[in-house]
């Protein structure tokens, strides 16, 4: 089953939290292939984190409410699995990292997951070391989680997920607490994991500029539903107005180009990153 090329399959998935009167997500159908790098975006409150919680089984196993439709993750039905079993398949870095850390020290926190898989000491050691290396948390290993700054907590949460070596990693607004340089490093580390180990990556992010280099596909949600799902470059080019209308944080170079194009100064496809915009502009400026 886990040999299938599809890692996520959702069909008409919906969820309404207990005590609320409208569903947080509804009618979500999507399929994610093994080894894809996907960006999930949409206005604040549109249901992105709720969808993530369905993927790793927090919904319906921890959150009260009504779930509808179907969701399969790595060939498993999330409602029939323990979340501890699911965590070997899918790792989720929470939007608020503080809620994810509980051990007495950073190192113990990162080792907690692998220890519960019953791995050998040597294997645990090597996973923890490599996760700390990738996330640049070696220097923090003896600190308590409450002694960390916001961004340091987020790196530790990510290290804990990496150490589990899951087939898929979901990062829920990972860059919000990270300094810009670390944000870039973490994104490129995620891409490296994808290339080297075929790990599927789903990133929830408002700023497209931070992921446009890596994500080939974009899924856009609004009011609990998927409103666009396709190639990142084509979607930016052909649905630009829809995206900005929803409040999606398009890359500034794309915005610049779209404005110049609207006013008749340039023609052609909206660029998605700086180098591409610079080349096109240099050409037009005769150089």
């Amino acid at each position: 089953m886990s040999g299938s090329s599809e890692i996520i399959r959702a069909e008409r998935l919906g969820f309404k939290y207990a005590g609320t009167d409208k569903p947080a997500i509804q009618n979500v159908s999507l399929s994610i292939g093994r080894g894809e790098f996907v960006l999930l975006t949409g206005p604040s409150g549109c249901g992105k984190s709720t969808l993530c919680r369905c993927l790793n089984g927090l919904i319906p196993n921890f959150y009260q409410g009504e779930i509808s439709g179907d969701i399969m993750v790595d060939g498993l039905s999330t409602s029939k699995q323990l979340t501890s079993e699911l965590s070997r398949h899918i790792g989720y870095v929470f939007q608020n990292p503080e809620n994810q850390l509980f051990a007495l020290t950073v190192e113990k926190d990162i080792a907690f997951g692998p220890e519960n898989l019953g791995l050998s000491r040597a294997e645990i050691r090597s996973r923890v070391d490599s996760a700390m290396h990738v996330t640049n948390t070696v220097g923090l290993k003896d600190l308590a989680p409450y002694e960390l700054s916001g961004g340091q907590q987020q790196r530790v949460a990510l290290a804990g997920v990496l150490a589990m070596q899951p087939s898929m990693i979901v990062l829920d607004e990972p860059t919000s607490f990270l300094d810009p340089k670390t944000a870039e490093e973490i994104m490129s580390a995620a891409e490296q994991l994808r290339q080297d180990q075929g790990i599927t990556i789903l990133v929830v992010e408002h700023r497209l500029d931070l992921v446009a280099r890596y994500a080939k596909r974009i899924i856009v949600m609004n009011k609990g539903e998927v409103v666009a799902d396709g190639g990142l470059e084509e979607t930016l080019d052909t649905q630009f107005e829809m995206l900005t209308g929803l409040g999606v944080g398009v890359p500034r170079v794309s915005l610049l180009w779209a404005m110049l194009r609207r006013d008749g100064f340039v023609t052609g496809r909206v660029p998605t990153h700086v180098e591409e915009a610079a080349d096109s502009l240099s050409k037009r400026l005769g150089n």
């Binding site: 300094d179 810009p180 500034r252 610049l256 610079a278 502009l281 240099s282 400026l285 150089n287």
Partner: peptide, 27 residues
């Protein structure tokens, strides 16, 4: 300060040979 330049600053750094000012950060 471990920052990364905003996209407009990166773009205009590349367009400098065309004689643009060096401190453009806003779209």
């Amino acid at each position: 300060a471990s920052l990364v330049k905003p996209q407009m600053a990166k773009l205009f750094a590349r367009l400098k040979p065309q004689g643009f000012p060096g401190d453009v950060v806003d779209v």
